[in-house]
Write a protein that binds this DNA or RNA. Structure first.
Lengths: 246, 246
DNA sequence: AAGTGGTCTAGACCACTTG
DNA sequence: AAGTGGTCTAGACCACTTT
C-alpha cells in the first residue's frame, strides 16, 4: 500500500523511529508527555500497527520511550530511577545501590583543555562550564566528580540555577535545556589519588583510586558531557553487566 | 488456533524461547549448528511465523542465536569475535582493542575459599579448578587472571587439556563440557597491587591496579566461573558502555 | 464501557545466499 | 531456481487502566 518508495535509508520502521525521535528533539512532545495511541500513530505514519509497534519497541529498548499497558506510551524522563538504573554504577560491597547525596564544590565558566575539547568535539576557544561535585554515600564522601559541558548547549546556566535544581543533573539538562542524555561511554583505570580529590574526600593523597572518564551523549551519538569521577573504592565498587551488548 | 491453553508461565513466544534454549542445553543442536528454518520451527511449535520470529529475536538479542540472511539461524559459538565483543573489556588508551596473548602460569585442583564458594553457589568441600593466567597486550604482560570453576561441571579437565585448547577459554567450556557462558557480572575497584600479581606482571608491589571480580554464568543465571583480574592500567583501560541496560 | 498497550495469526513480498 | 531470513500488512483477541 506504500505509494512512494521513501525508503531513503533502511527500512520503514527505522524511518518511523527517526521521525519519532525528531518529534522529541524538536519538542513536539516533551519528557513525560504521552504519545498518541499506537493506532493513531500508525494512521499518521501510514504504516500498519505492527510496523508502528516495531518502531516503538526500538525506542523503548533505548529507554527513550516508556510503555505502560492500559495507560499509554510516554517520553522517557531523566528521573532518579532512570539515573540509578542506567548511569549510576557505584554500589556497596554487598551489592546494594543507594542514591548519592550531592554537594556542589565549584562552578565556573572557562575554556576546555585539549582532551576535553577533543572528546566533546569543540574548539579550545569555545566556552565550557566546569563543575566539581562531591557525592556522599551513607553519609561519607566517596566520589569526586569533575564535569565539563559546552556552554553553547546550556545557555544561561549559572551556579544558582545549577545548585537549585530539584532532581538529577541529567534531569536539569533535559527539562531546562532540552538536552536528553541517552547513553555514555566510560573508561576506567586505577591511579594514585591526586591531592585535589583526596582533600575533597577526606583522604590522604596517593591512595589507590578508581578514575572513571565518562563521555555522555544525546541522540545521534552527539557528545554533551565529559565527566571524570574519582572514586574511593575501599567500601564501594563499580558494577558492570556483560550481557548482550547493544 | 491454540487448542490447549499451555500458557503455564508467560506468553507463547516466551514458551517457545524456553523450548529453544532447552534444545540447546540438551545438545539437540550444538554450537555452530544451523536451526531448522523458521517456517519449519513455526510448524513444529504450532505457532505463527511471527511468533516464532519473536522468540528467535529474543535469543538473538542475548547472543544465544545468530541469524544470517539467506543462510539460516545458527547456535552462537564462543569464538574469538564473541569473546572480544562481549567479554574482553580492556582496551588501549587510544581505544583500540586487541586479542590478548594468554600464558598459563598455574593449574591446580583444590577447594574454594568462602567467597569463591558463596559466589559459585557450591560447598566449601566441593572441588574446584584454580587457574592462573597472564595476559599480554602488545607483547607486555598487563592482566593477571585467577580463575575458579567447579570441578563438577568440568569433569576430566586437566592442565594438558586446558593448555592445549585451540580457542578461547569460554570456547573450551562450551565445546568440551557443554557449558555456554551467556553473561557475566563484574565488580571493579582500585587497590595496591599484591606481590603475587606484581611479580607475574613484572611490576613492583603496591602500584595502583584495577581489580575486577567477574562472576560468569550460563543459562538461567547459573554461576559457572569466578574470576579475579588484576590489571595494570598505565597503558590500558577498562571500557564500558552505558546504553539501555538489559 | 471505552481506550490503551500486549499477544498472535496467516498470509504477502523483498533481500540475500547457495546450488 | 530454490531456500533462507527480513519487512510489512490487516486484522483478531487479551490484559490492563481509567472513567
Amino acid at each position: 500500500m506504500r505509494d512512494t518508495p521513501r525508503r531513503s535509508r533502511g527500512s520503514l520502521y527505522q524511518e518511523v523511529m527517526r521521525q519519532l525521535i525528531d518529534d522529541i528533539q524538536r519538542g513536539v512532545v516533551g519528557p513525560g508527555d504521552a504519545l498518541p495511541s499506537e493506532s493513531e500513530l500508525a494512521q499518521r505514519f501510514k504504516v500498519s500497527i505492527g510496523t508502528l509497534r516495531r518502531a516503538v519497541d526500538g525506542l523503548v529498548a533505548d529507554n527513550i520511550l516508556v510503555r505502560q499497558q492500559g495507560r499509554g506510551t510516554f517520553v522517557g524522563r531523566q528521573d532518579r530511577d532512570r539515573f540509578m538504573f542506567q548511569f549510576f554504577k557505584i554500589a556497596a560491597r554487598d551489592g546494594t545501590l543507594q542514591f548519592p547525596e550531592v554537594r556542589l564544590h565549584a562552578f565556573q565558566r572557562s575554556r576546555p583543555n585539549e582532551i576535553q575539547a577533543r572528546r566533546l568535539g569543540i574548539q579550545l576557544t569555545d566556552a565550557v562550564f566546569c563543575i566539581d561535585n562531591v557525592l556522599a554515600l551513607g553519609g561519607r564522601p566517596v566520589v569526586h566528580d569533575h564535569i565539563v559541558i559546552p556552554a553553547a548547549l546550556f545557555d544561561g546556566l549559572n551556579r544558582i540555577g545549577f545548585a537549585g535544581r530539584t532532581g538529577t543533573i541529567y534531569e536539569l539538562y533535559q527539562s531546562d535545556f532540552g538536552v536528553t542524555i541517552v547513553g555514555a561511554h566510560e573508561r576506567i583505570r586505577a591511579e594514585s589519588m591526586a591531592m585535589s580529590s583526596a582533600s575533597l574526600l577526606g583522604l590522604r593523597a596517593g591512595v589507590p583510586a578508581l578514575r572513571i572518564e565518562r563521555l555522555a551523549y544525546t541522540f545521534n551519538t552527539v557528545p554533551v558531557e565529559f565527566r571524570v569521577s574519582v572514586v574511593d573504592t575501599r567500601e564501594f565498587e563499580y558494577v558492570s553487566d556483560l550481557e548482550a551488548p547493544v
